[in-house]
């Protein structure tokens, strides 16, 4: 495993730790999109169906279990925890899941490397992950106050795929891996979707101002 891949996994893990900290310690999920969190559960469940069938490494299996467990528990807190659920911005988190799930599923049926259940689900998870942040970004745009934790959470989540892009470049040139258009292009799209957010995040950080996205 190269340093970019590790950095990607660690920023991803850190983003989840940050969100869980906000939920568990602050008892708040204000500014967090339940829609996006539910999409991540679908992403992990469909991508990690191979967990029981194929063993890559201890690291790999543990991380998969952590991503599955934490994403499900985040959704549980936001939906059912009696204090946390009251902080959820239900009225502004109105993005419809189906508008993302359905096109991604159809695309996965049409464009995949092999028409098998595992392969189609894996491809679907990559397409869905690329766009899963959209409800969260819409929610941020509608929020007047974006707290630091939420801003940092979204930033780390975006940085994770950017590191993966570097990892793929490294693997292709240094480790002579194959061309993998499906993860590469969806990863590129995923990172590009954050471009606007990155711009305002870095700007607010440089000017020591509170993060605010223009409507």
């Amino acid at each position: 495993m190269n340093a970019f891949r590790l950095a990607g996994d660690m920023t991803h893990l850190l983003s989840i730790i940050l969100l869980l900290h906000k939920i568990r310690a602050m008892k708040s999920c204000a500014g967090i999109s339940l829609r996006t969190q539910e999409l991540y559960v679908i992403v992990f469940v469909t991508r990690y169906v191979d967990l029981s069938m194929k063993y890559y490494s201890f690291y790999n299996s543990i991380m998969k279990i952590v991503f599955l467990g934490t994403s499900i528990s985040i959704v549980w807190y936001m939906r059912y925890h009696k204090v946390v659920k009251q902080t959820y911005n239900k009225d502004v988190d109105t993005f419809r899941h189906i508008f993302l799930i359905l096109p991604c599923f159809v695309l996965a049926l049409l464009i995949n490397r092999a028409f098998t259940v595992i392969e189609v689900l894996w491809t679907f998870s990559l397409y869905l992950e690329a766009v899963a942040i959209l409800p969260q970004l819409v929610l941020l745009q509608r929020s007047r106050n974006i707290d630091n934790l939420t801003g940092n959470y979204v930033f780390l989540l975006g940085a994770y795929r950017a590191f993966y892009l570097l990892n793929w470049i490294y693997r292709f040139f240094i480790e002579n891996h194959q061309v993998r258009w499906i993860p590469w292009l969806s990863g590129l799209l995923q990172t590009a979707i954050y471009a606007d957010f990155f711009y305002y995040y870095i700007k607010s950080w440089k000017n020591r101002e509170k993060l605010k996205l223009p409507a």
Partner: peptide, 10 residues
């Protein structure tokens, strides 16, 4: 088989 790149990423 070499058609599949192993899915060893997360």
């Amino acid at each position: 088989e070499c058609f599949y790149e192993p899915k060893d990423e997360l």
